[in-house]
Design a protein around this nucleic acid. Structure first.
Lengths: 337, 337
DNA sequence: GGTTTTTGCGGGAACGTTCCCATAGAGTGG
DNA sequence: CCACTCTATGGGAACGTTCCCGCAAAAACC
């Protein structure tokens, strides 16, 4: 079923030398004569020798792989982060094992197990919207496998985390709406279990306070990020006796749904209602009007998270520090506000 | 740096039995007494034993991993395919090693090497737009590692391929434009090196022929899929003495760029010019007017490709057949036409 | 009750590397 | 020329499993 693959033993036998010597040549060990080095290299390339990472991994007790667990990767947000992480990881000789939890806690648990089975050298995690229990992730800590959270982080664990300044991003977004004359700014937020939801809500509230605008609980909704439900919430908001004149959503896809629904209803954007999203997803410049949004440095998030992980992998567990990296956001003002 | 992980030897020692017996219990071998089975299972769970796939992989000379090489994964197209493939693979106990070639031939070659090093059990490939030489992929064949192409396939290799009926999809798209009264239908196609580009161009031409419309070379352009260049081609088309009244593009992102540019120029869609894309990417319902497009069953492509790969992995090389799977497309008529 | 079959378990090779230790021969110094 | 160092190489354990083989004890058979 599988062809025999060339090994260093094959090379050693053909040259009548020991596999140790072949190994030395192939790993660049200095203590080997020029003559044998050349002979080995020549034969290796002739036979199309390919080192067997399965053996190297077992021998070194390292998989040379880092795992990434993300909630999804069809919207552009996580793929961009993954790209950044992959860049850093590849450069350091690590592979990346990507798995999607599909926003399901159970899948996340299963994915974590796969990562453990495969002895990943470290793992990058962004939680599902429904994860409340972290036992499956604490296992990594217990086993001495570095873990770094990004975007959707776990407050319960003392490990490095990479986030953007959600508070400030939300603050700037709402401030912008206030300064452009909006009086009733609604917020369609994410599940309160998520750290990002809380922070963005705080930023929203503080901006209102700062500018002496009332905080109207009626205008603050949170939902489970199931996009199908957006319509319901928007309809509710529009049907209020005093409907909002601005909407700040937890993320861009939510804003898209809201805009599509409102446009279908004949609500004019931004005249009747201004909309601001979060993350600058792919599509925010496609929709009309173009969506004002708080851009996240996705690529950088991935890079930084991967770097923090590699730093841990290459250092003693005793030196691990729960670094909390907060990256800047940027408000991109476009047509929707 | 790394904590000691529990092995079957640890368990064996503690229970005063041999590692063979522990192994038998853990792999579900029938020939083991109920008493010892329970004891082993109990201790294993107490010690939080996790099987070491690195060892299993080496032992079995299988990585239990399949590789996927895609040109990119920020637009939704490839992620959807990957999801489908991952589903099938996980169900069969395989991991998925994803790598992006970033449309770069050299990166594709490097990725292929990583896959070989890691002894993937099989590989799923969609070529870059610039791949002309296939030596790095023929290596897989030579080494007896199954390979399946999807979407952007390689005509040079006799291996299974999964594509959609690009010809028919294009035909239907253009037919639709003709039947809605368009007289001058332009085609902004992809690089002629790609199989899909050729097929879609054929479909375009045949539809015109079928309805006795002239094939005007002036209206047929091909480009390298670098989206920044779309403006240039569209400008060229609009500046023609007799500009087109319809545009059929190689894919949706191209259509998006074209629409944004034309809308900025004051060209009305679909009144002045109708637009039809290909693939039904994320965003096609966001842009206004909503884009008419030829939908591809992305999820299914991934599933089918992965299944074909698994079939090969689990059969003798002598039985491998270069199955050519052609999936159906569906024309989604929306506002842009 | 002796022979055969079945059951439960242990020993050890194997997977393909790396790495430590040993050793022969060449080179160096006084 | 002898003791020493250095260089190039070989031998073999180790990584954590699985799997084949063998063997003793228990079970089944006539």
């Amino acid at each position: 079923m599988k062809k025999h693959q060339i090994t260093i033993v094959d090379i050693a036998r053909q040259l009548n030398i020991s596999k140790s010597t072949v190994s030395r040549v192939l790993t660049g060990h200095p203590r080997v004569s020029e003559k044998t080095r050349e002979a080995v290299l020549k034969l290796a390339s002739e036979l199309d020798y390919q080192r067997n990472m399965l053996a190297i991994n077992l021998m070194s007790s390292q998989s040379h792989t880092i795992g990434i667990i993300v909630p999804e990767f069809v919207t552009s947000f996580f793929p961009m982060i993954i790209m950044g992480a992959q860049e850093v990881a590849s450069k350091a000789g690590y592979n990346v094992l990507i798995s999607q939890s599909n926003e399901s806690y159970e899948t996340e648990v299963a994915n974590a197990k796969v990562m453990l089975d495969n002895r990943v050298d470290g793992v990058l995690v962004s939680l599902t919207r429904e994860t409340r229990n972290y036992d499956h992730l604490k296992v990594f800590q217990r086993k001495g496998i570095p873990i770094v959270f990004f975007n959707r982080v776990c407050d319960d664990m003392q490990v490095p985390k990479v986030v953007v300044d959600d508070y400030e991003g939300a603050y700037k977004a709402v401030e912008h709406l206030i300064l452009t004359g909006r009086k009733r700014i609604a917020h369609l937020g994410g599940p309160t279990s998520l750290h990002v939801s809380k922070k963005r809500l705080e930023g929203y509230k503080d901006a209102l306070r700062k500018y002496n605008q009332p905080i109207d609980q009626e205008l603050i909704l949170d939902y489970d990020l199931n996009l199908d439900k957006v319509k319901i919430y928007i309809k509710h908001l529009l049907d209020l006796p005093e409907p909002p004149d601005a909407l700040f959503t937890i993320n861009d896809p939510t804003a898209f749904e809201a805009m599509l629904f409102m446009k279908a209803k004949g609500v004019r954007i931004p005249e009747d209602i201004a909309v601001v999203g979060f993350s600058n997803n792919y599509g925010s410049t496609l929709i009309e009007p173009r969506l004002t949004t708080v851009a996240q440095p996705t690529h950088e998030i991935g890079q930084v998270a991967a770097q923090l992980l590699l730093d841990q992998i290459n250092s003693d567990a005793s030196e691990w520090k729960p670094i909390y990296k907060v990256l800047k956001t940027e408000l991109l003002v476009r047509g929707s506000s």
